[in-house]
Design a protein around this nucleic acid. Structure first.
Ligand SMILES: [Mn+2]
Ligand SMILES: [Mn+2]
Ligand SMILES: [Zn+2]
Ligand SMILES: [Zn+2]
Lengths: 142, 142
DNA sequence: AATCTACATTATAATAATTCTAAACTATTG
DNA sequence: CAATAGTTTAGAATTATTATAATGTAGATT
């Protein structure tokens, strides 16, 4: 979703009612220069900082998953102990900083196109994603 | 760990006491032709099937993480809702079947070497892993 | 072989993340 | 505006995992 777009329209487009809470969440998620990565907890914090009214935790979960299902958010698996979401829903690779637990997007140009030779009968490829784990030279390397 | 190896020795090598439970878990995990992928739940089931005595759930968690820390198991993140472990601890890529929720190992030859152009200051690359999600042509594609 | 002791195991309780429930509320439609 | 279907909410329930503290045991010491 582009910045400052018509959130009400975008929600209607995919059959979601443009409720107060959903519009607020759109603003928090998409009204910014760059896409970003977050956990549900991050998001709850961000919402309560930017708002006077609160959105209940259950609604945040529901809405994040509703947005995910409609293709407005993407879930990223890195750490089995944490769920990350990404407002950048296009296919892209990631660096994961094991010191700070931060996700960093790769550009097109950062990693050459992956060439897959194997083919699994009856199955088609839905996505190909690379995760590059990095850490400081001195630090633990897990 | 190779099949039918000296588990007691292997445990001692890394400073783990060769207790009854750990030896049993080694047998369940490593006495087989091929490496495999499992969840804690799978493993608990496998153990109780192959045994008369039970190993408590807490011990299974503790031991899996102890083995992971010592490099005898690897944790794989695919699905934020499930933790998978791998008895193949070498660097390798995976296919993930979204229909059956099965992990499939890639051979060296299945995916060309990944060339990473970006470099993050002060950080070094710990691992580079590719996950290819596949699903049946007809099925849901997430 | 009996005893010792550090470490491991265990059952259980605790915590954390997420989902369910069912009642109250609200956006849309007519 | 009233009817309706969809949505929000607090709190309970569920699930996965970790912490705790009493008990057990491997390996060392006598
Ligand atoms: Mn999800
Ligand atoms: Mn782990
Ligand atoms: Zn991203
Ligand atoms: Zn594997």
């Amino acid at each position: 979703m582009p910045k400052n777009c018509n959130f009400i329209g975008k929600l209607r487009e995919v059959g979601l009612r443009p409720t107060k809470q959903r519009i607020k969440m759109c603003e928090v998620l998409y009204n910014r220069e760059k896409t970003f990565h977050f956990t549900i907890n991050d998001l709850v914090k961000m919402i309560s900082e930017k708002m006077n009214e609160k959105i209940s935790l259950a609604t945040v979960y529901n809405t994040v998953h509703a947005f995910e299902k409609k293709g407005y958010l993407k879930e990223i698996s890195i750490d089995s102990h944490k769920s990350y979401f990404d407002t950048n829903t296009s296919a892209h690779h990631h660096f994961f900083d094991e010191d700070t637990h931060e996700l960093i997007d790769c550009d097109e140009s950062d990693i050459d196109k992956i060439n897959i030779r194997k083919n699994i009968t009856g199955k088609k490829i839905n996505s190909v994603e690379v995760l590059v784990r990095v850490a400081g030279d001195n630090q633990t390397q897990k």
